[in-house]
Amino acid sequence: MRKGIIATVLGAAAVLAGCKAGGDYQGLEYAPNMYHSVAYEPLSQITDESAGTIVNSLDNGRGEYFNSNKYNPYAMNLREPAPNTVKRDPRGWLPYRGKRIAKDSIPAYTAKLSNPLRRDTAQVAAYLEQGKVLYVSQCQHCHGKTGAAESKIAQNYALGVANLKAENYLGITEGHIFHVITFGAGNMLPHGSQVSPDDRWKIAMYVKQLQSK
């Protein structure tokens, strides 16, 4: 009985010692295929063809962990885009290539920027409803329910929040609104990374509807 206990303890100690990693020794792994993908991965390339030979189950002579495409530049699994090309969205639209500029320059800068969602006239009503939901979640906390900057944030923010019902804002275009949501203006920070292009256009449509009331 005592010998059995001692053998069990020694066996457990050996297993635990084998799991200890440090320096150049990374320890033992249980079921390494759970940690190292055999399939290609776009952002993680292991270029050493001998990596993982100790657990190799492949018949191509390479280690289990090798997951690079040696025919692509830098052995990457992602292909670099062709030179001088611009990725289009699923509809074939080009991305907006604007930039943050002085507030007073925005009207002229966006004068020819039109809302592509307006082309689908049958969906305009649906886009406006979606724009309302987006406005409530993304804009109302500052600009207020009606757009007149009646929110608590606007009332307590010393630097001011734009009153979208003010006379000097009534003439702004949907392109102007889209640009400001994307890159920010004045005290407003950019929201281009938080709101998709389609959703920015829907918000712009709804803001113009608010201004007409």
Results as ranks from 00 to 15, higher is better:
Ser57Val: 13
Ser57Tyr: 09
Gly61Asn: 03
Arg62Pro: 00
Gly63Gln: 05
Gly63Cys: 07
Gly63Trp: 06
Glu64Gln: 15
Tyr65Glu: 11
Phe66Cys: 14
Phe66Arg: 09
Ser68Val: 06
Ser68Arg: 12
Asn69Gly: 08
Pro73Ser: 14
Tyr74Lys: 15
Tyr74Ser: 15
Tyr74Asn: 15
Ala75Trp: 15
Met76His: 13
Asn77Trp: 10
Asn77Met: 13
Leu78Phe: 13
Leu78Trp: 11
Leu78Gln: 13
Glu80Ala: 15
Glu80Gly: 11
Glu80Asp: 12
Asn84Asp: 15
Asn84Ser: 15
Thr85Glu: 08
Arg88Ser: 08
Arg88Ala: 11
Arg88Thr: 12
Asp89Pro: 05
Asp89Ser: 08
Arg91Pro: 00
Gly92Met: 06
Gly92Cys: 05
Gly92Arg: 07
Trp93Asp: 10
Trp93Arg: 14
Leu94Ile: 07
Pro95Glu: 09
Pro95Phe: 10
Tyr96Phe: 10
Arg97Gln: 15
Gly98Ala: 05
Gly98Pro: 01
Lys99Cys: 02
Arg100Gln: 06
Arg100Lys: 10
Arg100Met: 03
Ile101Lys: 05
Ile101Ala: 07
Ile101Gly: 05
Ile101Phe: 04
Asp104Glu: 15
Asp104Pro: 04
Ser105His: 09
Ser105Met: 13
Ile106Met: 05
Pro107Phe: 12
Pro107Asp: 12
Pro107His: 13
Tyr109Gln: 09
Tyr109His: 10
Thr110Lys: 01
Ala111Ser: 13
Leu113Tyr: 02
Leu113Val: 07
Ser114Val: 13
Asn115Glu: 05
Leu117Glu: 02
Arg119Ser: 07
Asp120Cys: 01
Thr121Tyr: 04
Thr121Trp: 04
Thr121Gly: 05
Ala122Phe: 02
Ala122Leu: 08
Gln123Glu: 07
Val124Thr: 12
Val124Gly: 08
Ala126Tyr: 00
Leu128Asp: 04
Gln130Asp: 10
Gln130Trp: 00
Gln130Tyr: 01
Gly131Asp: 04
Gly131Gln: 04
Gly131Lys: 02
Leu134Ala: 12
Ser137Val: 08
Gln138Asp: 02
Gln138Pro: 00
Gln138His: 10
Gln138Thr: 04
Gln138Gly: 00
His141Asp: 06
His141Thr: 09
Gly144His: 04
Lys145Ala: 14
Lys145Asp: 08
Thr146Arg: 11
Ala149Ser: 05
Ala149Gln: 02
Glu150Phe: 10
Ser151Leu: 04
Ser151Trp: 01
Lys152His: 03
Ile153Val: 11
Ile153Trp: 00
Ala154Cys: 04
Gln155Val: 03
Asn156Tyr: 03
Tyr157Arg: 06
Leu159Ser: 03
